[in-house]
Design a protein around this nucleic acid. Structure first.
Lengths: 361, 361
DNA sequence: TTGAAAGCGCTACCAG
DNA sequence: CTGGTAGCGCTTTCAA
């Protein structure tokens, strides 16, 4: 009873068209896929007949079964797929991957990874030639499910699995750069704003155990890098307060308020992402705190907004677009049987106006 | 010679696993797809064997050929796919579609539509159950190619084809609202900044013929709406100058400069998108023109940046997210055999600070 | 609860 | 340049 094609009753296939025109299936197939192997005239005749019969063209599933490839690349992204579109860093990355796919005429299949039910089933059913896993926690069952499919896979940011293609940056180094920057400015009372470190709903300060158990490698590293720099820097007794939240400006704002309520009030707040730092900026403004006069703020990622905020954000610049391009290219390379390379991209500290010397206190 | 699965030589299929365990293919299939039809013990045994053999799970293409559906939704977007990720309106839309797909556990396949070569082929090969066409020019060959596949399809913004599912807004009405707003403010010398009206590389003023020939319905309507309001408003002899460009802030800026160079200088510039208007804002700033003191600026879409710009932009608010949600839902509905509805969403004029009375001159 | 058989629609091969 | 043939790997009856 389903609404099927237009009219005539049974399904129309390559065979139907072949019968009508009076040629064989193979010839009709060629008309679509190998135009040069055919008289232009015959080809037109076949295509016309197909049009008239309402033939939707060679069935993609059948074609793939036969061919063994699909021309599609899959992409798996942290938790809610829709979130990918609200995170500027992710958008930049996705755009670059998309551009690469486009040049190869490959489709990009965005896969959902809700913690829920049968995501494993969806993943198993995805018709793709290769996969990109973008910033997933190591222990996510989707990662497992994808690995089992034994597709050429490139991991971006996390997890990082030996022997698999990987694109990322040295996040710990980035953390260290930030830490050194703020200690050099004389801050010995700093707050850290971090996104989720584990796949749960915890909100609050980060204990050592939690950090150690973190399955979000990149944030764990950024965090550790900062902490190392603070602890082993020139300043004795740096006081560190922390808040863990979702990676949104809203959560950054809320977390910053908590941090700013603690006594003594931090003179610097380091966001592990720009999103978080931008939220902290709003919190500072809401309290009438001048940045960097009363409060130093730093981010991580260098999303476009970091440059246009007021004041512009001191941050770690990582090549978001390049990351996507590298991932896309690796994806395409793997399809050609290329090797599983690891690409570590460069980062650097970008000192803008949101950080300054600690006010004497 | 291709790098295939790990080791043993020939490919491992359902049959291989069945043979090893000593059951039939059907049973192994059930182990994956109908766990309840199986002893838990046997099931484990099968899954273990599969793991050991390196069986990647039921081949998706084969499964789809058999099943006749894929659980994937396709999305086709104007020209370069990568552009989709740089246009805030598109990102918002995509995010919402993605969210809907996610709830249904459907994958979202982003299809490239480069004007180039064999896009038609890619389109024919895309394994999807339904398609969303987002803001494509009417005459794009991809639209044709998709139609031929006879998939349940929903069109968003354009083209609008009778009898097909559609989501959009009354763009002409929006244009009219903008036009009325500026004439009410006493502007009789206005510039219009429009995105591409035809799929070519033209840059410059828009002639009547070009407008008439436009295949980008929404911009044509916005433009016409504005023009009608200006011509038939309370002010006699409104002077209109126009510039057509790509839909980016950079192009908006360049276009605005051209407009501002004309004599007499327009007292209002109306962007057919916020992107363009935001670019015009930069141009105004570069020239030391105060907005809205020296120049009134309006946009269209109400992307997030429109609210945070300085000054905030007077614009037509259209429900970008809702649009995506509606499209996503329609897509999913069509899959269930639902009817091809048309959804017209509401828009309204949002008067913010970028528009003001025309300075006497 | 399990197994045997029947295709799903297509394209590559190879012979004409 | 064209056509016949042989599966690609799976799921689903139906019968045991």
């Amino acid at each position: 009873m389903h609404a099927r094609g237009a009219g005539a009753g049974s399904r129309v296939t390559l065979q139907t068209v072949a019968d009508v025109v009076g040629v064989s299936r193979a010839t009709v197939s060629n008309a679509y896929n190998r135009p040069e192997r055919l008289g232009a005239e015959l080809r037109e005749q076949i295509l016309d007949a197909a049009r008239q019969l309402g033939y939707p063209g060679p069935n993609p599933a059948a074609r793939q079964l036969r061919l063994g490839r699909s021309g599609m690349v899959g992409l798996l992204f942290t938790e809610p797929l829709s979130y990918a579109f609200s995170d500027p860093a992710a958008v930049l990355f996705l755009g670059a991957v998309a551009r690469e796919c486009e040049t190869a005429n490959a489709g990009l299949l965005l896969l959902p990874s809700p913690p829920n039910s049968d995501m494993a089933r969806t993943l198993r059913g995805a018709v793709v030639d290769s996969m990109c896993i973008y910033s997933m926690p190591e222990d996510h069952e989707a990662v497992q499910a994808v690995m089992e499919r034994q597709l050429p896979t490139v991991f971006v940011d996390q997890p990082r699995i030996r022997g698999t293609a990987f694109v990322g940056v040295d996040d710990r180094h980035g953390g260290r750069l930030v830490g050194e920057h703020v200690t050099a400015l004389g801050h010995h009372n700093v707050g850290i704003l971090t996104p989720r470190l584990l796949a749960d709903d915890y909100v609050g300060p980060v204990g050592d155990d939690r950090l150690a158990a973190s399955t979000f490698r990149i944030f764990k590293e950024r965090f550790s890098g900062i902490r190392d720099a603070l602890r082993h820097g020139p300043l004795p007794d740096v006081r560190i307060t922390t808040q863990e939240r979702n990676n949104t400006p809203e959560d950054g704002e809320a977390g910053a308020h908590v941090l700013l309520d603690s006594e003594p009030r931090p003179t610097a707040i380091l966001g592990l992402t720009d999103q978080l730092a931008l939220g902290a900026l709003r919190a500072a403004r809401a309290r009438g705190l001048s940045v960097p006069g009363d409060l130093t703020l730093t981010g991580f990622d260098d999303i476009p907004e970091a440059a246009t905020s007021d004041p512009p954000l001191t941050t770690i610049q990582q090549p978001l677009v390049e990351k996507g391009t590298a991932a896309g290219r690796l994806l395409l390379d793997l399809l050609q049987g290329g090797p599983a390379k690891e690409e570590m991209l460069n980062i650097r500290l970008l000192v803008r106006e949101s950080s300054g010397p600690a006010r004497e206190g």
